[in-house]
Write a protein that binds this DNA or RNA. Structure first.
Length: 367
DNA sequence: TTGTGATGTCGTCAAGAAAA
DNA sequence: TTTTCTTGACGACATCACAA
C-alpha cells in the first residue's frame, strides 16, 4: 500500500499461525488431518476488543462456523492448508485485501471495514462540530480581522477600532497561529508556515507592526505578489509600507464567502481590465489581461493565474490536510487495535488447537 | 548554556481518485 | 470533461533529550 512503506497490511483475520512456536507446525508427531473437531473457542471479537465471548463451533476443513459474539453472528469460513493450519477463507477477506491494496482513503477503508464487520469499529465521519466551530469563528470575528492563506496569518485588526484608511485587505478564512509565536512576537510569518494552532488567532493591537513576508520574496515579486508590511502606528492608521506606490489590491470572494486578495504592481496594472461578469458570483472580480503580447508576459500571466488558483485552494487544502491526518491517525489506531485483537485471538486458537490435539491423541491411544 | 540530532506537527503543492 | 477531494512528499519549524 503506498504510503505505508510498501507493506501490505493483512487485516483478514486469518487463523493461520506459521510462527516457529506454533504447535501445529512444530508438532510433527501430532496428527495433521483433522477431520472433525468439536470444541469450544473462547474468542475475542475483533470489533469489540477486550470482550471475551464463548463460541460454540464445529470446525471442519472447508466449512463454516458460526461465531456468536455479543449479540452478533459472524460467519467464518475456515479450511486447513495442508500443514495443519486453520486458515480463514471467507470472501470478506478478499474484499478487505482489495480495499487495502488500493490507494488508501482512510475514511473509506475504515467505513467499509466497519460496515462489513461489526459496529464496534467507529466510522470516520465528517467532523460536523469542528466545522460548525470554524463557521462560528468566521462569523463572529470582525470581517477585517481575517486574512488569506498565502499571506496568511495576518489577521489583523482591533475589532473595536475599524480602520480609518479602509485599505481593502485581507479578508478570508481565519488563519490560526501558534500560541508560542503569538506570545513571542507580533511578526506574523508567511508562506509555508502560516499557522499551527487552530484554537487561536492573531490579534494585532494598535502600535504593532504586522509583517507579511514570503519565504522567497523574489519569487513572489515576479508573480506580482508583494511582500506587504503594514504598520499600525498607534493612530489607527495602517499603511502598506512595502507596497509600491500605485499598487492595486484585487479582492475577491470565494464560494464559501471567504475573501482573498491579490496585489497588482503599479507597473502592471494597466495590463488588466477589471470587470465583474454576470456569470461570476457576487463579489468576485475577474481580472483579465489585455494587450499581453510577449511570451514572457504570457508566462507571467500563467504563473499569476496559477498562483491565484493555488491561493484560492490553500485554505481548503490546509483543512483537508488536517482532516486527512486525523483520519490517518484514527486508521492507524484502528489497525493497532485490530492487530492486538487478532494476536490475542490467534494465541487462544493455538492453545485450543493444542489441547484438542492432545485430547484426540489421548482418545486414539485408549481405543 | 549551547549545539545537535531525532521526532513530531503543520502548511503547501502535485497527482491521482472520485464526484458532479 | 471539469471540479473537488484525498493523500504522499517536502520543507520549515518547534520541542525534547543528550553531550560538550
Amino acid at each position: 500500500m503506498p504510503g505505508f512503506g510498501g507493506k501490505q497490511l493483512e487485516m483478514d483475520g486469518s487463523i493461520d499461525d506459521k510462527s516457529e512456536d506454533s504447535p501445529s507446525s512444530s508438532g510433527s508427531s501430532q496428527p495433521q488431518n483433522l477431520s472433525t473437531v468439536v470444541h469450544t473457542i473462547t474468542a475475542v471479537p475483533t470489533a469489540i476488543p477486550n470482550q471475551p465471548v464463548q463460541v460454540q463451533s464445529v470446525i471442519q476443513p472447508t466449512q463454516q462456523s458460526v461465531i456468536q459474539a455479543a449479540g452478533q453472528i459472524q460467519t467464518v469460513q475456515v479450511e486447513e492448508d495442508g500443514e495443519g493450519h486453520l486458515v480463514r477463507t471467507d470472501p470478506d477477506i478478499e474484499k478487505r485485501r482489495e480495499i487495502l491494496s488500493r490507494r488508501p482513503s482512510y475514511r473509506k477503508i475504515l467505513n467499509e471495514l466497519s460496515s462489513a464487520e461489526a459496529p464496534g469499529i467507529a466510522k470516520i465521519e465528517e467532523d460536523k462540530e469542528e466545522e460548525a466551530a470554524i463557521t462560528s469563528i468566521q462569523t463572529t470575528i470582525p470581517s477585517y480581522v481575517q486574512t488569506s492563506g498565502q499571506y496568511g496569518g495576518y489577521c489583523i485588526k482591533e475589532p473595536t477600532e475599524p480602520p480609518s484608511h479602509q485599505l481593502p485587505i485581507i479578508y478570508g478564512p481565519p488563519v490560526p497561529l501558534p500560541p508560542a509565536r503569538m506570545q513571542d512576537s507580533s511578526k506574523v510569518r508567511g508562506i509555508g508556515d502560516a499557522s499551527q494552532d487552530s484554537s487561536s488567532y492573531k490579534k494585532v493591537t494598535a502600535g504593532q507592526t504586522i509583517q507579511i513576508a514570503a519565504a522567497n520574496q523574489n519569487e513572489l515579486t515576479t508573480q506580482g505578489l508583494q511582500t506587504i508590511t503594514m504598520t499600525n502606528a498607534g493612530q489607527g492608521a495602517v499603511t502598506a509600507a512595502a507596497m509600491p506606490a500605485g499598487t492595486t489590491i484585487v479582492q475577491y470572494t470565494q464560494g464559501d464567502g471567504s475573501q482573498q486578495f491579490v496585489t497588482v504592481p503599479a507597473g502592471e496594472v494597466q495590463a488588466y481590465q477589471i470587470r465583474a461578469p454576470s456569470s461570476l458570483p457576487a463579489g468576485v472580480v475577474m481580472a483579465t489581461p489585455t494587450g499581453i503580447t510577449s511570451p514572457q508576459q504570457l508566462a507571467e500571466e500563467s504563473a499569476r493565474k496559477r498562483e491565484l488558483r493555488l491561493m484560492k485552494n490553500r485554505y481548503k487544502n490546509r483543512e483537508a490536510a488536517r482532516e486527512c491526518r486525523r483520519r490517518k491517525k484514527e486508521y492507524v489506531k484502528c489497525l493497532e487495535t485490530r492487530v492486538a485483537v487478532l494476536e490475542q485471538q490467534n494465541k487462544t486458537l493455538i492453545e485450543e488447537l493444542k489441547s484438542l490435539k492432545e485430547l484426540y491423541c489421548h482418545k486414539a491411544e485408549t481405543e
